[in-house]
Deep mutational scan, measured.
Amino acid sequence: MQVTWGNVTVTFSNPEEAKKYAEKVARKLGGQVELHNGQFRIK
């Protein structure tokens, strides 16, 4: 499962870890987490 924002992509084998990481990054950037085609995207 991947977490992407800007031109950065981070890949996780565990979807739960990916979700936690995406939420943490979104909080830092003041963005929203979207699940899109099996990727968490931060907008």
Results as ranks from 00 to 15, higher is better:
residue 43 K to S: 12
residue 23 E to C: 15
residue 11 T to P: 04
residue 20 K to I: 13
residue 27 R to V: 09
residue 4 T to G: 04
residue 26 A to D: 00
residue 5 W to K: 02
residue 15 P to A: 13
residue 9 T to N: 04
residue 13 S to R: 11
residue 26 A to T: 02
residue 11 T to I: 13
residue 21 Y to L: 06
residue 13 S to M: 10
residue 37 N to S: 05
residue 39 Q to M: 09
residue 42 I to S: 01
residue 32 Q to G: 05
residue 31 G to P: 01
residue 32 Q to T: 15
residue 7 N to C: 15
residue 18 A to V: 01
residue 6 G to H: 10
residue 2 Q to C: 14
residue 41 R to Q: 13
residue 18 A to Y: 01
residue 29 L to T: 10
residue 38 G to V: 01
residue 9 T to W: 03
residue 7 N to Y: 08
residue 8 V to I: 14
residue 16 E to S: 11
residue 31 G to T: 06
residue 25 V to T: 06
residue 16 E to W: 09
residue 42 I to T: 01
residue 25 V to Q: 05
residue 17 E to V: 09
residue 15 P to Q: 12
residue 1 M to V: 14
residue 35 L to P: 03
residue 9 T to H: 05
residue 18 A to W: 02
residue 40 F to Q: 02
residue 11 T to V: 10
residue 37 N to V: 03
residue 18 A to R: 00
residue 14 N to T: 13
residue 21 Y to V: 04
residue 5 W to R: 03
residue 8 V to W: 10
residue 12 F to R: 01
residue 3 V to L: 04
residue 2 Q to N: 11
residue 13 S to Y: 08
residue 23 E to G: 05
residue 13 S to F: 09
residue 13 S to C: 15
residue 38 G to N: 09
residue 43 K to R: 13
residue 37 N to K: 08
residue 28 K to C: 15
residue 21 Y to G: 00
residue 24 K to M: 14
residue 17 E to S: 11
residue 27 R to G: 07
residue 24 K to H: 13
residue 19 K to T: 05
residue 5 W to M: 07
residue 26 A to F: 01
residue 7 N to K: 09
residue 30 G to P: 03
residue 39 Q to H: 13
residue 28 K to I: 15
residue 14 N to P: 01
residue 41 R to I: 15
residue 6 G to A: 07
residue 13 S to P: 12
residue 34 E to F: 09
residue 25 V to I: 14
residue 15 P to E: 10
residue 42 I to K: 01
residue 15 P to F: 15
residue 12 F to G: 00
residue 17 E to H: 10
residue 18 A to M: 02
residue 23 E to I: 10
residue 12 F to I: 04
residue 29 L to M: 12
residue 43 K to P: 05
residue 24 K to D: 12
residue 1 M to S: 10
residue 42 I to C: 06
residue 11 T to C: 15
residue 18 A to I: 01
residue 10 V to R: 08
residue 30 G to H: 10
residue 10 V to M: 09
residue 14 N to K: 07
residue 26 A to M: 02
residue 17 E to T: 11
residue 22 A to G: 02
residue 19 K to M: 11
residue 38 G to H: 15
residue 22 A to Q: 00
residue 5 W to P: 01
residue 13 S to D: 13
residue 9 T to C: 14
residue 35 L to S: 07
residue 17 E to W: 08
residue 24 K to L: 13
residue 11 T to G: 07
residue 40 F to C: 04
residue 34 E to H: 06
residue 27 R to T: 07
residue 42 I to L: 02
residue 3 V to I: 05
residue 30 G to I: 03
residue 29 L to N: 04
residue 24 K to E: 13
residue 41 R to E: 10
residue 16 E to A: 12
residue 4 T to F: 08
residue 28 K to G: 07
residue 4 T to A: 10
residue 23 E to N: 08
residue 39 Q to R: 08
residue 33 V to Y: 06
residue 23 E to F: 12
residue 16 E to L: 12
residue 27 R to L: 11
residue 43 K to W: 08
residue 11 T to N: 13
residue 17 E to P: 02
residue 6 G to D: 15
residue 30 G to F: 05
residue 2 Q to S: 14
residue 3 V to T: 01
residue 25 V to W: 09
residue 39 Q to I: 13
residue 24 K to P: 00
residue 43 K to E: 08
residue 19 K to F: 13
residue 33 V to T: 02
residue 4 T to R: 13
residue 18 A to C: 06
residue 39 Q to A: 12
residue 27 R to C: 15
residue 32 Q to Y: 15
residue 4 T to D: 02
residue 13 S to T: 13
residue 21 Y to W: 11
residue 35 L to I: 13
residue 9 T to S: 07
residue 7 N to W: 08
residue 3 V to P: 04
residue 19 K to I: 08
residue 30 G to Y: 05
residue 36 H to K: 11
residue 21 Y to R: 00
residue 40 F to G: 02
residue 24 K to F: 14
residue 20 K to A: 13
residue 32 Q to M: 12
residue 42 I to F: 02
residue 30 G to R: 07
residue 17 E to I: 10
residue 13 S to H: 11
residue 15 P to C: 14
residue 19 K to N: 05
residue 36 H to F: 12
residue 42 I to R: 00
residue 23 E to S: 06
residue 33 V to R: 00
residue 17 E to Y: 08
residue 12 F to H: 01
residue 8 V to H: 12
residue 42 I to Y: 01
residue 18 A to F: 02
residue 12 F to N: 00
residue 12 F to K: 02
residue 10 V to I: 14
residue 14 N to E: 08
residue 5 W to G: 02
residue 11 T to D: 06
residue 14 N to V: 06
residue 39 Q to F: 06
residue 40 F to H: 04
residue 14 N to Y: 05
residue 7 N to V: 08
residue 33 V to I: 11
residue 1 M to Y: 15
residue 4 T to I: 15
residue 10 V to S: 03
residue 35 L to Q: 09
residue 2 Q to F: 06
residue 25 V to L: 13
residue 1 M to D: 04
residue 17 E to N: 08
residue 20 K to D: 11
residue 17 E to R: 07
residue 22 A to Y: 02
residue 19 K to C: 12
residue 26 A to H: 01
residue 22 A to F: 03
residue 10 V to F: 08
residue 16 E to C: 14
residue 3 V to C: 05
residue 24 K to G: 08
residue 11 T to Q: 11
residue 9 T to A: 04
residue 15 P to N: 08
residue 31 G to S: 08
residue 35 L to T: 08
residue 7 N to F: 08
residue 34 E to A: 06
residue 37 N to L: 06
residue 30 G to V: 03
residue 13 S to I: 10
residue 35 L to A: 07
residue 37 N to Y: 04
residue 35 L to E: 10
residue 8 V to L: 08
residue 43 K to D: 06
residue 12 F to E: 00
residue 21 Y to D: 00
residue 38 G to A: 03
residue 41 R to S: 07
residue 39 Q to E: 12
residue 2 Q to M: 11
residue 7 N to Q: 09
residue 28 K to P: 01
residue 2 Q to Y: 07
residue 21 Y to K: 02
residue 12 F to P: 00
residue 10 V to P: 00
residue 29 L to G: 03
residue 24 K to I: 13
residue 14 N to F: 05
residue 25 V to D: 00
residue 1 M to F: 15
residue 27 R to M: 10
residue 19 K to W: 13
residue 26 A to S: 05
residue 9 T to I: 11
residue 38 G to C: 11
residue 38 G to T: 03
residue 40 F to L: 15
residue 28 K to D: 09
residue 25 V to N: 01
residue 9 T to P: 00
residue 35 L to K: 08
residue 1 M to W: 15
residue 36 H to V: 15
residue 10 V to Y: 09
residue 3 V to M: 02
residue 10 V to W: 11
residue 27 R to S: 09
residue 22 A to I: 04
residue 36 H to W: 10
residue 34 E to C: 15
residue 15 P to I: 14
residue 10 V to G: 01
residue 37 N to P: 03
residue 37 N to E: 11
residue 6 G to C: 14
residue 5 W to V: 14
residue 9 T to E: 04
